[in-house]
Structures are given as structure tokens and as C-alpha cells.
Design a binder for these strands. Structure first.
Length: 308
DNA sequence: TAGATACCTTATAG
DNA sequence: ACTATAAGGTATC
């Protein structure tokens, strides 16, 4: 067992619960078993765990680790099967300069309210393949159900690892998901997304393409690259770019953000996804626009609209 | 290129 | 109890 502590005085503003329960990541699960949909289930000091997949000593062997983390006031505590500090810094983007990002963002009442309400929320950097599959599953789905689908995939097709007496599951490999049948995936409740997941996994397993490849491309080219996967359109592609590949200028245009644009920034509606995306990206702070998007999404989804 | 429609499953409103 | 509607959209025509 490895343990460690990070103080907020060294990493700046951070809010673990907002970060992992804001609908941007499906890789962290609450240890107390309470589901995110229980809105009254305050997880202010709950432990959250994830399975980390590294490269094992043998190239055909996956090296699995577990890390869990919780926040108590101004400290971030972690326990893991390995020295997890660098992993946590990367996965939870602890090196982002949040105050500087906010300073670089245009100010208006909606954005100020969202930033104030969830100050400390950070973007995450999740593994590319798992993120790709999760957001394929996200189509016409509530956040809570997306979590359920990911858990079902893990428990059915993922490798398990025991840590501190508990069993954890890694996200399935592309190869394993590619072998799954559409019927098996439908049985897990994926609905019409089942063939999307199977075929995209197959593309990755066979080497046709890999989401990681998008990292080296310019933002809009990267979005087009990801859209070649089955079940991946511009919105899902933006989610993968933002929550996994580090394109923090990406602003996924989902129903929440679209209604926000309609209500608060009607002049940004350009009709097409690409043009509207450029306009709202500029309005949300350009190179850091994805941060603004995530604050606004979380705020609106939790009843922060003007109609409240 | 832009617009309309079908699509699985589940939860909630009426 | 039963039907309509919507939930972080995409593929197809």
C-alpha cells in the first residue's frame, strides 16, 4: 500500500467531487457505493477509485494498478498499489493554473456564477479508448445511466484486480470488446449503441485507427479524425478531445450547451456545428474554452438556468 | 450541404 | 396502469 497527501496550497483550487461527478469522466467510482443520481448523497469526503492501466514488463501483459483518492478540506489524500502522485497530477490535471485560466476567460454573469459555484472543478485526462466508448454510449443517455453502462462493460469484459481486499475492474481492452457480439452488448442495456461500440472496438483492435492518433493533429483535424469511428459524430469527438486528449479548447455542443447558446448567446448560433463551435469557443475564452464549457454544463445541469 | 427520421432503453410526467 | 416524452446524438436517406 502506497499513500500520499497533496495540499491545496501547492496545487491551487481543487474540488474533487465536482471534478469527478460533473459528467465529464466515467472512470472514477465512489467507494461508498452511493450512486451519483442520489443528489442528496453528499460525497464531499468520499473516496473515489479508478484502475490504472500501465505497460507491463512483458509487452503482452497488462499491468494493472488501483488508486483511490479523497478530499478533506484543503488536502487530497490517496492510497494506491503504486506511487500514484504523478498519475494523479496527470489524470486530474492538478498542474493546470485555474486562476490564470479564469482570468483569461471573458466575464459575464452566467460564467461568473458557474465558476463561483463549482470553483476548483478541473478537467480530467482519461484514457482515450475508454473515453471514446463511454461517449459513444452517452448518446441520448442520462449521465447516471452512462455510468451504469460503463460499469456493466467493466464487470462483463474487463480484467479484475484485487487491491486492499476489494475487487476492481479495468475497462475492457479493444480486443475484448471487439470480440463481443452485438447481442451481448444489448443485453448490457446499450441499445442501438451496441453495434457502434463493437465496430469501433474492432477498428481499434485491428489497427485501422486509434483515438490516441488524434493527439498530434490540429484541433479541428483531430475532431474529423475521431469522427471516423462508428457512433462518433462531432459532439462525441469533442468530448474525447476535451476529457482525454488535452484539447481544452474543445466545446462539445450538446443539448445543454445548445440551449445555453440559444438563451444567453444567440449571436453565436451559426447553424452548422463547426461554425457555432468556433463562435462559442471565442465567447468562452478561446484556448481554454473547454474549461468554461464544463463549468457551465455542470451548473446548468444542476438547476442553474435562468428559468430556475 | 442542410433537413427529417429512426433508433434501444429507462425514468418520469401526465 | 398506460402513453408520451426526453435523456451530454449518430447514421442514413
Amino acid at each position: 500500500m502506497h499513500r500520499g497527501t497533496l495540499s491545496l496550497s501547492s496545487i491551487g483550487p481543487f474540488d474533487l467531487q465536482s471534478t469527478v461527478e460533473s459528467g465529464q469522466t466515467f472512470r472514477w467510482t465512489r467507494e461508498d457505493g452511493r450512486s451519483y443520481e442520489e443528489s442528496d448523497a453528499y460525497g464531499g469526503d468520499a473516496w473515489y477509485a479508478t484502475v490504472v492501466v500501465g505497460d507491463g514488463p512483458a509487452s503482452d501483459e497488462r499491468d494493472l494498478d488501483v488508486v483511490r483518492v479523497r478530499q478533506t478540506d484543503d488536502r487530497l489524500e490517496w492510497e494506491a498499489s503504486f506511487d500514484a502522485e504523478a498519475t494523479l497530477r496527470r489524470r486530474l490535471r492538478l498542474d493546470d493554473d485555474l486562476p490564470a485560466i479564469r482570468d483569461a476567460t471573458p466575464s459575464d454573469p452566467l460564467l461568473e456564477t458557474a465558476f463561483d459555484r463549482y470553483w476548483g472543478l478541473r478537467l480530467v485526462r482519461d484514457p482515450p479508448f475508454a473515453t471514446l466508448i463511454a461517449f459513444i454510449c452517452s448518446a441520448q443517455m442520462r449521465v447516471e445511466r452512462i455510468h451504469e453502462m460503463q460499469r456493466a462493460l467493466e464487470e462483463r469484459f474487463g480484467e479484475s484486480i484485487t487491491f486492499d481486499g476489494e475487487e476492481y475492474y479495468a475497462f475492457p481492452t479493444p480486443e475484448r470488446l471487439a470480440e463481443a457480439t452485438e447481442a451481448e452488448l444489448r443485453d448490457l442495456g446499450l441499445g442501438y449503441r451496441a453495434p457502434y461500440v463493437q465496430r469501433t472496438a474492432e477498428m481499434v483492435a485491428e489497427g485501422t485507427a486509434h483515438p490516441q492518433e488524434a493527439t498530434d493533429l490540429a484541433y479541428e483535424d483531430a475532431r474529423e479524425y475521431l469522427a471516423q469511428f462508428v457512433g462518433v459524430g462531432e459532439k462525441v469527438a469533442d468530448c474525447v478531445l476535451l476529457f482525454s486528449l488535452g484539447f481544452i479548447e474543445a466545446v462539445p455542443l450538446d443539448t445543454w450547451i445548445r440551449s445555453t447558446i440559444e438563451e444567453y448567446y444567440p449571436e453565436c448560433d451559426r447553424g452548422s456545428y463547426a461554425e457555432t463551435s468556433r463562435a462559442i469557443r471565442e465567447r468562452f475564452g478561446g484556448e481554454y474554452a473547454g474549461y468554461t464549457q464544463t463549468y457551465v454544463f455542470h451548473h446548468l445541469r444542476n438547476g442553474g438556468g435562468s428559468s430556475e
